[in-house]
Amino acid sequence: MQLYKIVRYVIRDLLRSRWTYVYFAFYYLLGMVLLFINRDLSKAVITLMNIITILTPLIGTVFGVMYYYNSREFIQLLLAQPLRRDMLFSGQYIGVSLSLSLSLILGLGIPFSMYGVLYSGVIWDFAVLLVIGGFLTFIFVGLALVVALANDNRIKGFGYAIFLWLAFAVVYDGLFLLGLLYFRDYPLEKFALGGVLVNPIDLSRILILLKLDIAALMGFTGAVFKKVFGTSVGMIMAFGALLLWVWIPWQLMLWYARRKDF
């Protein structure tokens, strides 16, 4: 009950803030422009993949950090109330993530349904795309709150959060690729699979690619890939890993919150 109340407060608070609408408008315009340029729904979905896997984490990160620092006084006020800390921070977390996910789903959903995605063959691809966008939002808002809780200095917090995003979005892949090249004389399939599971952005990309029928290209590489990507095993594994990825930052955040001296 407490949790629900806090989530409601946070969402109401965010609905009054400009940023939720900016975010919504951004996705709305993006969807419109993409469809205007492409006209072809299925191609627009592919382009959208890159945007979802890169931008939703970035926006989630920035927004999460910003929200925490801006509502520090409010949080301190709430802390003085007879509320459990777990409830309070979980509420904050869910509220922010939920409102961001809603902006994403509505912002992209409205233009795409105007172009008839509901009656086209790519409806499921599109749905997976949105669900994954939601997942990524939750994951990166969680990570951002962890960083913000660990750093009282705003500038430092922002810096670390952005770096975290950069690490997952670009740096990790670079190191990963170097590792693959360096150990190319060894059997790498399982290592490559593991490497993908460790990074939520890579994981999301693979999930979307699997929906977009690139499974065959992956399967071409070897027997393990064929088994994982060629069947529903890959899908289930990837979704499981994504769920775990939501759970870990959340628990980490609560762990920090419990120990923090405000």
């Binding site: 993949m49 890159n50 896997t53 890169i54 979005a169 670009v170 892949d173 990963f176 690729l177 693959l180 090249l181 790498l188 399939e189 290592f191 490559a192 699979l193 490497g195 993908v196 952005i201 890579d202 990309r205 693979i206 690619l209 690139i214 290209l217 992956m218 071409f220 590489t221 070897g222 890939f225």
Partner: peptide, 9 residues
């Protein structure tokens, strides 16, 4: 095996 990085940034 680097195929897993297909279409990444």
């Amino acid at each position: 095996e680097a195929m897993v990085l297909l279409r990444s940034l």
